[in-house]
Each structure stands twice: as C-alpha cells, then as structure tokens.
Simulated scan of single mutants.
Amino acid sequence: MPLDRILRHLISWQRADGPPVPLRKLTVEQARERYLANSVRQGLPAGDPRAAVGTEERTIGTADGSSIGARVYTPASDEGRVVTFLHGGGWVLGDLDTHDLACRTLASSLGAVVVAADYRRAPEFPYPTPLSDSVAAARWTSRRFPGRDHVLAGDSAGASLALGVALAARDEGEPAFAAQLLLYPPADPSLRFAAAGAHPDGYLLSVDDMAWSYELYVPDAPRRHEPALDLLRADLRRLPPTVIGTAEFDPLHDEGVELADKLQVEGVWVRHVPGPGLVHGYLLMQDIVPKAAACTQQVLQELDSVLRSAHPADERPPAQPYADAIAGD
C-alpha cells in the first residue's frame, strides 16, 4: 500500500526547508525538546471519551533505592484490567507528557487503569537502569491492583522494555501478565534487518537514529547481545499472549515481523497487526492521521479479544476499586 496521503504531506512539509537535522547532530536536550514538541497535543474535542479519563501522579520505588514518577489513568468505565505502559523514544527521548494521549486511549478503549512509568532515560542512566525501573513499575502495578488482568504494553523502545520485563517475570516467577502489547518493537540491536529493509530512511525514523539510540542506551556494545536487548536471539518461550503492531514504512518493520514469527514458533500465542501505509510512531499520531487512529483501535480490539477470551464476562473476577488500590500508599 502507498504511504498514507496525510503522512506523505506531513513528511513533505517537514522537509520543505531541507531534511530534518539527524538526531546525532543534536544535543540530547535538543532532541528531547523536538520530540516533545512533535508529540504533545493541546486539549481534546468536546465529548471525546478520553477527556473523561482521570489522572493522578504517583511515585514508585526502584531497585537501587531511588524512585521514579508514574501517572495513573483511571477510566470512566472499569473492565477490571490494568496496564503497565512503557513509553517509546529510543530509551533517550519521551516522557509521561509525550504519551499522555496514548495512555488515555488505552484507558478509555480497554476500560483499564493505566500506569505509565517515567523510567530513567539514557544517556544519564544507560542500560540496565531503564529496564530495572520498568520491572519495578510492573511489580508496583501488580501489588497495587491485584486480581486484575495485568497487561504489559509499550511502543518502540517501550515495547523492547516491556518484553524485557516479561522475560524477567517469567524467569523470576512474578508478576503474572495476562497479555502484552508491543507496538513497532526494536528487537535487533545489530540493525541488520533495519539496514536491509525497504524503508531505512525518510519516514520519520532512520537506521542512523536507531544506531544513535543504541549507542546512548547501551554504550558497552557487547552487552547489546544480552537477551533483554537482542530479542530475536532470546528464549521467548512461556511468555503471555502477545499482540504486535508494525508499520509498513518503518525501518523496524522487518524485525517486528520476525519477532512475531519467533514468538509463534516458540509456542507463544501471537496476533500480528500490520500497519499498511503507516510509519513508526503512529500511536502518537491518532489525532492528526485517521489511518493511525484506525490501526490503533484495531490493535486494541485484538488485545481486548485476548483478555475477553481469558475471562468471559460471566467469569470475570471483581476488580478492586481504584481508591482501595492506592489507599495508604
């Protein structure tokens, strides 16, 4: 399918004065400011159900005795689910504000409490700190919201972190997850799939952008072969049912497809939702690209189907009220 018409115009507009400055030619702060400016939207239309989602700022203790922030989203209609959400941005960019609309969408569409973790980012905190913080966030969520179907979710770098958390939980025996949602996950630190793919550059993310991200996140290059990073070489058996979303015009497309295939071969239930005509980061474009919004809803409908098959309506356990979950914390 050709590149979505609206995305084509957006990319043309972005390049009107020449190609955008590559990430590695910006300071980290400049890159973060640009990502924030491109991600944050002002307000929601009147009557949008996502506007009814409540939010509260929380603090989560980490394994090294520090703490990270978190934002808890409470849906208007509660289906007894909870999501630990890990934002994208190459482990360097992104924060709670860049993914606020995405988390509101998850909460509203799934009827789920969403805990968005503000894990510490590289290069100030390289690997494994962001992963360790993500594990701590998932455990906090599990303790605060027992009895709910717990979903691990993330986009881009956050999807890599989510899968790393799932591997740690499998090996350590807790917490238990009902499903995981991985949107355009980076799974190949060698970037061989990305470099050999059909769209290595020119569609809002380049192979060089990913190389820059890995250099800052894992400066000790040999560590990039560890299972939590080199996901296509990891043992992926006994992981929760997984929904993977990819984008056609994304350097990470082929490794996302390969990851879906590997999970299935290793016995994990997988549903791969392709994003024809879309680019990396479509989760953050729902309000300006109708096709991105439609694909996001398709991904969430697949996830909803997984959760409903695990707990038919007449067998669903009662959800602990949100107010009770955070009482005394």
Rank of each mutant, 00 (worst) to 15 (best):
T105E: 09
W212E: 01
L231I: 09
V306E: 09
V273I: 11
T296V: 15
Y184E: 05
R58I: 14
E315Y: 05
P189Y: 04
V72R: 06
A196D: 10
L131E: 04
D118H: 12
V82E: 03
H87R: 01
T74D: 09
P321I: 10
R170F: 12
V279S: 05
P2W: 03
R8P: 00
A31Q: 00
P200N: 11
G89E: 01
E172N: 15
D95P: 07
Q301K: 15
D4A: 08
W140A: 02
L10H: 10
H311P: 02
V115K: 07
P189W: 03
T27D: 08
L232Y: 10
G65R: 13
F85M: 01
G328C: 01
T246R: 05
L300Y: 12
M1K: 10
R223E: 12
L3W: 08
K262W: 00
R223G: 02
V82N: 02
A260D: 01
Q14S: 12
A37D: 13
R139H: 12
D78G: 09
D254A: 13
E315K: 14
V289D: 02
I6H: 05
G275M: 04
D133I: 07
P241I: 07
M1H: 14
A102F: 12
S305A: 15
E215H: 10
Y214Q: 00
H99Y: 11
A325Y: 03
P128A: 10
R143H: 13
E124N: 06
R139Y: 01
G173V: 12
K262N: 04
A313N: 02
R104A: 07
L307D: 09
